[in-house]
Design a protein around this nucleic acid. Structure first.
Lengths: 352, 352
DNA sequence: AATTGGCACTCCGGCACCGAGAGTGCGAAT
DNA sequence: ATTCGCACTCTCGGTGCCGGAGTGCCAATT
C-alpha cells in the first residue's frame, strides 16, 4: 500500500472534483488518470484517506469529495503552481500601467483580479499606518476653516476639514504658507505613526496661539489613522458568486453578507497578515490560503480565501493585502498564481 | 361595473402581492380588503384588468399578479406615499451628520439607504461637471513633478500627478506659490466646464515657458472631467438580493452583473435624470421609477429602479443621482419615500 | 503483503401517478 | 350590475418504483 500513490489519489480527487463539481468515484478516477491500478485498489486507498480525514462522502455509496483538510494538504504539499500565460501577464501589466492615480489603480486591480480568477476579488487600500507621509497641504478655504490634505507615499490622499479652534488669531495666506512649510520640513518623509511627536515639536517653535492650531492638526491626523478611515477595501466580481458552482440558496447569502460586513474580511486579512509576518521562513511564496472553516467564520464555512500582501519588499513591510474569495472547491494552483502575480504588479505601482 | 372599484382592485392586488409574494385570487382579496362585493364581481373586474394588460396570471387557474404596466399605473396614480417614522428620520439625520468628508458621507448614505429599504442601494458621486471649483492646489513633490489637487464645492477631491513638460524651467516653491495664487484667483468659484478658458487666460499673463505648464494643467483638468473618472458610483446591500423574495437562479445573476457593469447603471440613471429635467412639471415629487422592462436592459427585466436627484434646489441643477434596485415586486410607496428622504438629507451635506 | 475480481448492498435521482386545493370562467338567477 | 353555483384546469406535495453509480468486503491471485 504505497504512501505515494495515496497522495496521488488525493491529488487526482481534488483536481477532478474541482473541474467536474461532482463526487468522484474509484472507476472514473482510474479512467481519467493513468494510475496503473484497478478501481478496487483505489477503493482501498480511498478508505485510508477517508480514515485520515482528507476526503469524505456526501452519502453512502456516492463518490468522495475532499474535506477542508484534504484541500489543505493539497495546497501545502501537492499543488504545483501553474504559471500565467504570456498574454495574461501582458494584459495585467498594460492594464495597470494605464492607471492614473491610486483610486484608479486599486479599482483596476480589483476588477482585473476578479476577471482573471473568475471569483470575488478584494483589495485593501494601502494602510496609512504603514505608509510614510509625502506631503501635508493646508488650504485656507474660508476664514476659520482649513482644509487639511495628507498625501502618503503610497499615493493615498486623505482630506479633512478643520475648524480653527477659538483662540487662534485670524489666519492669512502667508501664515498658513509659513506653517505649511514648517510642517512639511518637520514631517515629510516620516512614517505616519511618527507624525504626532514631529508635529508636537513644531508646536514648540511657533507662537502659543498658533500652537493651538497645530494641536488641532495633530488630532486630525490621529483621527485619520483611526481604523474606520484607515481600513478601506474595495471588491468586485460578486456576480461570479451566482455563477453555476456555488450552491446558491445556502451559501451565497452569508458570503455576500460577510463581504459587506467588511469588518469580517478585514479581521481575516489581518490574521493572515500576522501569520505571514511571523512564519515568513517556510513558505517560498507569499500567498496564504484559508480554507473553509479555517476562516473561523460561520458564513464562510464553504468559502476559501487566497490572499497576498503587496507593496514592500517582503511580507514584513507590506502595506496591505489583496486576494480573492471563492468556493472551497476552487482551482487553487491557478488562483494562487493569479493572486501572486497581481500582487506583484500592484506593488510596483504603489512603491514608485 | 364601476371604474373606480376596478382601480381599487388593482391597488389591492399590488399591495397583497407585494406583501405575500403569491398570486392573489378573488376570494382572498375580498377577505383581506373590505371591498363590499362578492368574489364573482371581483373576478369580472379582474378579467377586465387583465384585458387591459394590468395584471396577468402565471398559469391558468392561479391568482393574478401585476404586470409592469400594472405597477406603473399603481405608482403613477394609485400609490400614497407613506411618511417615514420619526425614529427613522432621526436615524438618517444623526447618521449622516457624523460624516467627516465626502467619501464618508457617500458611503454612509449608501449603507443607510440599503438598510432602510432592505434593497440594493446606489449612490453616484457628485458630478464634477456639475460642480464648481472650490480650490486648486499645486504641490511640488519633486523637481519636475507637480501634484495637482482639485477640490470641488461639492466636496470632491481629485488629484493627479503632473510631469512638468520639457521647456519649463526648474520650478521653485515661490514660483509654484505664485502660480497657485493666480490660478485660484482666476478660477475658484467657477463651474468646472468654465475652467478651461479661465486657465487659458492665466496662461496669457505669465512667461511663455510657464504658460506651457499651465497648458499641461488644462489637459489634466480636462482629463479629470472625462467620463470614466467623472462617473463614480458606490453601492451596498447586494446581500439583500439573496434574501428570500428574489427568485434566485434566474434573476440574481444578471442583476449582479448589471451592478458591476456600472456602465449600465450609469446610463440608466442618466436617462432618468434627463427625463426629470425635461418633465419637471407634472410630478410633484422628484423620485422617478423604472419598472421591469422599462429599464430597457434584459438583465433587469424583473428589477425596478427607484431614483432621485440630489444636491441642488431642483432637478435642473442636481449634482447627481441616488437610488435603489429591487424586484419589480417591491413596496413602492415605502421605497419611494425612503429614497426621497435620503436624497434630501444628502443634499444638505453636499451643498453647505 | 499488496492487488484484483466478483458480488451484494445502499442510496440518490428521476419519473409517473394521484389527490387535494385554489382559482377561474361562464351561464343562469336576482 | 351583481351574485350564485358548478364544471374545469392547473399546481403542488406526497408516494412508490426503478436504474445507475458507487461502495465494502471477501476470496483469489501474484
Amino acid at each position: 500500500m504505497s504512501e505515494d500513490r495515496r497522495l496521488d489519489v488525493l491529488r487526482a480527487i481534488v483536481s477532478d472534483y474541482v473541474s467536474t463539481r461532482e463526487p468522484v468515484g474509484s472507476r472514473t478516477l482510474v479512467e481519467r488518470h493513468a494510475l496503473g491500478v484497478s478501481p478496487a485498489t483505489i477503493r482501498n486507498d480511498m478508505a485510508a484517506l477517508e480514515e485520515a480525514g482528507y476526503i469524505t462522502q456526501p452519502h453512502t455509496s456516492a463518490g468522495r469529495i475532499p474535506t477542508d483538510s484534504g484541500y489543505r494538504l493539497f495546497v501545502d504539499h501537492l499543488a504545483t503552481l501553474k504559471p500565467l500565460t504570456q498574454p495574461e501577464r501582458r494584459a495585467i501589466e498594460s492594464f495597470l500601467a494605464e492607471s492614473v492615480d491610486l483610486d484608479d489603480a486599486v479599482n483596476r486591480t480589483v476588477r482585473m483580479l476578479s476577471q482573471l480568477t473568475q471569483q470575488v476579488a478584494v483589495v485593501q487600500y494601502p494602510s496609512l499606518r504603514r505608509s510614510g507621509l509625502r506631503h501635508v497641504e493646508l488650504v485656507l478655504v474660508a476664514p476659520g476653516r482649513v482644509l487639511v490634505v495628507l498625501i502618503s507615499d503610497t499615493g493615498r490622499v486623505e482630506q479633512r476639514m478643520l475648524d480653527v479652534p477659538a483662540g487662534v488669531p485670524e489666519l492669512d495666506e502667508s501664515t498658513v504658507a509659513d506653517l505649511r512649510g514648517r510642517i512639511n520640513v518637520a514631517a515629510a518623509g516620516l512614517r505616519m505613526p511618527a507624525l504626532r511627536p514631529a508635529l508636537e515639536a513644531v508646536a514648540q517653535d511657533v507662537t502659543p496661539d498658533l500652537a493651538l492650531l497645530v494641536h488641532a492638526l495633530v488630532d486630525v491626523v490621529a483621527d485619520t489613522l483611526t481604523v474606520e478611515v484607515e481600513d478601506r477595501i474595495v471588491m468586485a466580481g460578486t456576480a461570479h458568486l451566482a455563477r453555476a458552482g456555488y450552491d446558491f440558496s445556502r451559501t451565497i447569502s452569508p458570503v455576500l453578507e460577510a463581504i459587506e460586513e467588511q469588518v469580517v474580511l478585514m479581521r481575516l486579512l489581518a490574521e493572515m497578515a500576522a501569520e505571514q509576518e511571523a512564519g515568513g521562513v517556510g513558505r517560498e511564496h507569499d500567498v496564504s490560503v484559508r480554507i473553509g472553516t479555517e476562516t473561523r467564520y460561520a458564513g464562510l464555512s464553504e468559502t476559501s480565501v487566497v490572499a497576498s500582501p503587496y507593496g514592500g519588499a517582503s511580507a514584513q513591510d507590506a502595506v496591505a493585502f489583496l486576494g480573492v474569495l471563492g468556493p472551497t472547491r476552487m482551482d487553487y494552483p491557478t488562483t494562487m498564481t493569479a493572486v501572486r502575480a497581481v500582487a506583484r504588479y500592484l506593488s510596483r505601482v504603489v512603491t514608485p
